[in-house]
Design a protein around this nucleic acid. Sequence first.
DNA 1: TCGCTTGACTTGAACGTTCAAACAGCGTAC
DNA 2: GTACGCTGTTTGAACGTTCAAGTCAAGCGA
Lengths: 359, 359
Amino acid sequence: MSTPITPPSRIPAARPPAGGARVANQQLERVATIETVAERAGVSRQTVSNVINSPDRVRPETRERVQAAIDELRYRPSRLGSALQSRSTRSFAYRCHIDEAEENLLLDRFLHELCRAAALRQHHIVLVSPANETDEIVTYDDMYRTGGVDGFILSGTYPGDPRLDFLIAERIPFVSFGRNWDHPELGGWVDIDGAAGVADAVQHFWATGHRRIAWIGGSSTGGADNDRRNGYHRTLTELGGEPLAIECSETIEGAAEAAVAALGVAHPPTAFVCATDIAAVGCSRAAAEMHRTVGAELGIIGFDDTRLALAPTPQLSSIRQPTAMVAQLLIDGLIAAVTSGAIMAPHLLNPTLIHRGSS
Amino acid sequence: MSTPITPPSRIPAARPPAGGARVANQQLERVATIETVAERAGVSRQTVSNVINSPDRVRPETRERVQAAIDELRYRPSRLGSALQSRSTRSFAYRCHIDEAEENLLLDRFLHELCRAAALRQHHIVLVSPANETDEIVTYDDMYRTGGVDGFILSGTYPGDPRLDFLIAERIPFVSFGRNWDHPELGGWVDIDGAAGVADAVQHFWATGHRRIAWIGGSSTGGADNDRRNGYHRTLTELGGEPLAIECSETIEGAAEAAVAALGVAHPPTAFVCATDIAAVGCSRAAAEMHRTVGAELGIIGFDDTRLALAPTPQLSSIRQPTAMVAQLLIDGLIAAVTSGAIMAPHLLNPTLIHRGSS
DNA sequence: TCGCTTGACTTGAACGTTCAAACAGCGTAC
DNA sequence: GTACGCTGTTTGAACGTTCAAGTCAAGCGA
């Protein structure tokens, strides 16, 4: 049998520009489709599809011929076509928010890790940026319903978080960086054991002789902040110390003021365990103002190990979150949720205390 | 005519789970499609489509009936369906890279603005994270060919940037934050006039009596770094001052060391104009080490106005880029490129000098 | 020789849209 | 009374893929 070339049943006729089509790219060069490849290789679409998706179903000889056609035409299967058919876009949405001071500092790092982890699994991250919280839920619903994404990655959850309730009620696949505070047993989350991280910090200070160890951070009563503060209280109490929690606003300025005030009293603290690096930098500034030597005289440990911790002299010790691991677990968990409906087991990861000049 | 309810011609039979389908959501509730709505309203698909896309073509009476069906069924048109048909996903890719120290600090802010600007135009931002540069081009090609995105947003361009050549050669729509250094006249970019920003800084120092004004920054010979450094040289020379450019590595540490050395000589500089906030923080640290009072005794102006500038005491003045405007121009330009093939005119925006305690 | 199985491949249909062409109904002009 | 145009609506086809079912020839045991 000579090479069987099925005659082109219909000639695609290179549609005119059309509504919002790619005008810049549209001059007749019409990108190769599975059909083009099939014609070139003298087989049917499905065989081409098989060569790509289940090569073992195709005779080696044919496979080779098809592969040659694929290479020749630089064919790449259209994500859209398969998405429509499989009802999965292989992409997840993540909210890009920079309003809350605390979380932002980690945003770029986390986003990068998320992106890498997704890429490893052939998925993409799509950003959303709803203005406010109700808007956020509406946006999620919209994105999911319009088929834009297969699922959602949340971060910065807190007790009573309406997003979790909504997504669960609507049976929309999601995972969160931050536990489900109300029902941790439901799973579907990865979080950092903030309390454990803070416990490390407190124990370190205690072991190096500090007896007046203060906590400084925001007044937030829910979520990660509270978890960290609780870790402080518990650990210090267990060691026999007397807790001193200082409240401040979530800015360097605010923390500095609060720390200056704290250092001005009789028996001032000799060490600060901070809710964030922002607060830590504030403490560092307060130390300068009150003429204390950071490190030897006054201990400071921040949280999140952002670039901010490197700014002061000496550089600040900080508690680092294993973001890469978090990202990987989240992506894997979300893929599982989408494909099999399985909700991932909860993961509580330990952060690491990075020692620098301030502790 | 009584309400015409066309009998459901075929019952969709709720396909079994299938390959990668949404198992979690798949129990018979099958999301509404345009066909469902059409049946419910007793009209054809196209009429529903018209109600959504060109309502003026539909009789008000019918329109109302269709709208009711849409609301009732909570119908949202599938992005996938229309993307396949219109060949446009209404999404753009942006590279999420955090390797280069300089650019990162702006990443989250810029990304957020980009995301907002895109949302205003009903578009989405998809992240990509190629490992290296050749990989980046391959990834772009891949994403475009597989129909994942309509175009690309680059940042951090430099002379000889292979990405620009590639995208132009392949006629792939893109815009860049950062000019096309080799052929600025080609357009398709928005950039900050770094030289002008630095000129402001130099002039400010000169006007306030400084005569030994140093430049400190990386040794990079291309792109934005060079532009900023040239602005320094030109302005200072014009004013009659003697340029002193200090090279340092792109870390706080490196800048601090270099600044300390510079301050140690006879007739040391009294002001630092810095290529980045990182360098500026380094200078601030050097000042502390060499016992100079930042502000009164030693001027410092950073670049990018990142959070880092707020860390030292006093807070550092910095040159702020109008990222929101950049993002908006880029998105509009890219949409134009995709829809009409038009390449946007180049935009060179002026940054703003933000005065704080250090100048 | 027949029926059954297996392997390799093809065809039909569906996923959810929208463009283009067709069509029905009605009013107006010749 | 036919021709024409206008308005509102429907139908066919296409976008690029994959699942499910079909075809077809070869191999094999009875």
